[in-house]
Design a protein around this nucleic acid. Sequence first.
DNA 1: AGATTCAAGTTGTACTATACAACCAAGCCG
DNA 2: CGGCTTGGTTGTATAGTACAACTTGAATCT
Lengths: 150, 150
Amino acid sequence: MEADEAVETIQREMTAFARRARASAGRMHPELSLVSYTLLGHLEESGGCRATDLAAHYALDKSTVSRQVAALERARLIERRVDPDDHRVQVLHLTAAGRRILAQVTESRRTAFRERLAGWPREDLERFAAYLVRYNAWSPESAGDEAEGR
Amino acid sequence: MEADEAVETIQREMTAFARRARASAGRMHPELSLVSYTLLGHLEESGGCRATDLAAHYALDKSTVSRQVAALERARLIERRVDPDDHRVQVLHLTAAGRRILAQVTESRRTAFRERLAGWPREDLERFAAYLVRYNAWSPESAGDEAEGR
DNA sequence: AGATTCAAGTTGTACTATACAACCAAGCCG
DNA sequence: CGGCTTGGTTGTATAGTACAACTTGAATCT
């Protein structure tokens, strides 16, 4: 069956990609690992949030986030502000330096992706993007939704 | 420009995927990491090869492969046979157990992917698969080939 | 109010994947 | 033969991660 073959290919290619991505991202941007980049990006988008939120959002252990945050703070890329309403909470914010590095790495990553995708017809880019969104949006809980038209 | 937006989306989604993949693969199949799985798969496809070939193919350091191979051998999933023509070389082969585990994990992964991709029209599956192949096939040396019709 | 439970973070510990460098051992070549 | 090359291992170091134990502050339930 051809559909099965396509699933197989998707599986193989996604796996291959996953295997390579982290390492190559690290080589491209030694100053900001993929994880740090992601966390910084979230802080920018969200305009500041708690370590716990990051952990929940990215399915990471709170200890992992704690250490990442500590490293980012040490590097002066983020700062912690204790929430006056709840002294357990530290709200994380990008510093100016953090914003700068983030922008720089984003730009450099964008360039790499643009280069890699150069020559793709716009229609293909848009379809590929849509497929990826759809693929990533899947979660066990949402399984079956589409089939039932929700 | 819409094409740029699509590139941005691809970037973001690929990144998100990469971040999650390894960990989730590990959770799904504690008995065989993504790397081990990949190496075993290569041995099956190739019908036996050298550690150096694996390293080259997956852009891993030979020391990394050496240790992976050692672990897989310890687990009795592969075996080494010294090449009679060149005593430096160890040709790696799957054992029966290795073949069994590989098949089992492949099946389980396939199921997960099938579930995730359930409800996708066959046409979309095929297009997505083709896009991924194209995306992964890219390498710095090949850049520009398409534009020049090679 | 006091005791208990809950939530946010930190720290200790351990493991995996990885790289780089130094090394060894076997072939190969002039 | 002697030196270079190639395949592989080992020592060492780092990043990212998890889990468990702990601290501290908040909330809740008598």
